[in-house]
C-alpha cells in the first residue's frame, strides 16, 4: 500500500445516506453518496439533515411510546435536553440544549430517536457502492457524490472519487460551488461529470434566498469550465415558484453557460416539499412550507427555452 493510499484509507467522511439506483444524478444507473455539511442555507432545502456537518439527532414524536411505558431517554440524557409533555405523556426534545451526543438513540426501543449521519471510511463506502457494479457496467453509471456540499470536505471527496475511478467507476458530483477555489479544483480533478447549481442569477436575490451572494460561485464555475475543458458540466436550477421560475433567470444562465462547449446541458429541477417532515424531526422550521407547487405549464415553457438554446427539438415534436 503506497503512502498516498494509506493516508486515504484513514480519511473519515460524514455520510448522510447512500442511495442506490439513482437515474437523475449523472449518466446511467448510479449510486449517490450524500455527505453532511453545507455552506449555503437555501430556504427551500429538501435535505435539511444534510446542512450540519456532524451526525445529529432526529425525533419522530409519533413513534414515542411515552414516559409511562419507557422513559429510557430521560435517564441517559446528560444535558437535560429531553422533557416530558404531561399533556400526552410523550417526550419532547429541547433543541436548544441538545448537543447531538446521541446517547438517547440506542436506548429508544421505538426508534423515535434516530441519528442522521454516520462516519465512514472510503473502503466502507465503496464496498456498498460496488454492490451494484453490474448495473454501472451495463448503463455507463457509477458513483455520484452529493450533499450537503461535497466539496466542503475536499480531501475526503477527492480521495473517494479517485478510488472509485481506479476501480473503473464513472464519477460525478453535485455541487453548489460555494467553496474556496482550491477546494473545488481538488475535487474536480477526479470527477467526470459536474452537476452544478445556478440558484439565482441576481446576487441580491441569491443572498436573500440562499444566504450569500453568487459572486464566488460564478467565478468558480467560470474558472472550472476553463480549467477542465475535457470534463462534462451539467448546469441545473432548482426551480422555486416566485423565486427563480422566470424566463429572465433561465436566459441569464444560458448566456452564462453557452460560451462553454463542455457545459452540455441545463436541467430544471421542479420544487417539491418532500423534505418538510424532516424539518419537524430536526426541530427546525421550513420557511417555504406554504409555497405552491410549480405549475406544469411554467416548467414546460422554461424547458422549451433551454431546448431551443441547445438546438433540440421542442418537447411537443419529440
Amino acid at each position: 500500500m503506497s503512502l498516498h493510499t494509506e493516508q486515504a484509507a484513514r480519511l473519515i467522511g460524514r455520510v448522510l445516506n447512500i442511495q442506490h439506483f439513482c437515474t437523475n444524478d449523472g449518466p446511467g444507473i448510479r449510486t449517490t453518496v450524500f455527505l453532511k455539511g453545507c455552506s449555503l442555507r437555501c430556504k427551500w432545502c429538501c435535505n435539511p439533515e444534510s446542512i450540519h456537518p456532524k451526525p445529529e439527532l432526529a425525533y419522530d414524536p409519533k413513534k414515542c411510546i411515552g414516559e409511562a411505558a419507557c422513559g429510557a431517554c430521560l435517564k441517559v440524557c446528560p444535558e437535560t435536553a429531553i422533557h416530558v409533555n404531561e399533556a400526552d405523556g410523550k417526550v419532547g426534545i429541547n433543541w436548544d440544549l441538545c448537543t447531538n451526543c446521541n446517547q438517547c438513540v440506542p436506548v429508544c426501543p421505538a426508534e423515535a430517536l434516530t441519528t442522521f449521519g454516520q462516519e465512514m471510511t472510503i473502503e466502507q463506502i465503496l464496498a456498498e457502492v460496488e454492490q451494484d457494479s453490474s448495473f454501472y457496467a451495463e448503463s455507463g453509471g457509477g458513483l455520484t457524490l452529493s450533499g450537503g456540499e461535497c466539496t466542503l470536505e475536499p480531501e475526503f471527496s477527492a480521495a473517494l472519487l479517485a478510488a472509485a475511478r481506479s476501480r473503473g467507476l464513472n464519477t460525478a458530483i453535485e455541487t453548489a460551488g460555494n467553496v474556496p477555489w482550491h477546494f473545488f479544483e481538488q475535487v474536480l480533478q477526479h470527477t467526470d461529470t459536474v452537476l452544478h447549481d445556478h440558484k439565482h442569477f441576481d446576487p441580491v436575490q441569491h443572498k436573500h434566498w440562499v444566504g450569500v451572494d453568487n459572486h464566488r460561485i460564478q467565478a468558480n464555475y467560470r474558472r472550472a469550465y476553463e480549467t477542465f475543458p475535457d470534463k462534462t458540466f451539467i448546469a441545473r436550477t432548482p426551480v422555486i415558484p416566485g423565486v427563480n421560475d422566470t424566463e429572465a433567470h433561465v436566459r441569464a444562465v444560458l448566456d452564462f453557460i453557452r460560451p462553454y462547449k463542455n457545459v452540455v446541458d441545463y436541467q430544471l429541477l421542479p420544487y417539491h416539499r418532500y423534505g418538510q417532515s424532516k424539518y419537524d424531526f430536526l426541530g427546525r422550521v421550513y420557511e417555504l412550507r406554504d409555497f405552491p407547487s410549480l405549475p406544469g405549464a411554467t416548467l414546460k415553457h422554461l424547458q422549451s427555452i433551454i431546448d431551443q438554446a441547445f438546438g433540440r427539438a421542442p418537447p411537443a415534436a419529440r
Binding site: I51, W95, G283, R284, V285
Partner: peptide
Amino acid sequence: NADVAFGQG
C-alpha cells in the same frame, strides 16, 4: 426563530 438552524420545530 424562523431560522432553519435554530428553534423549536
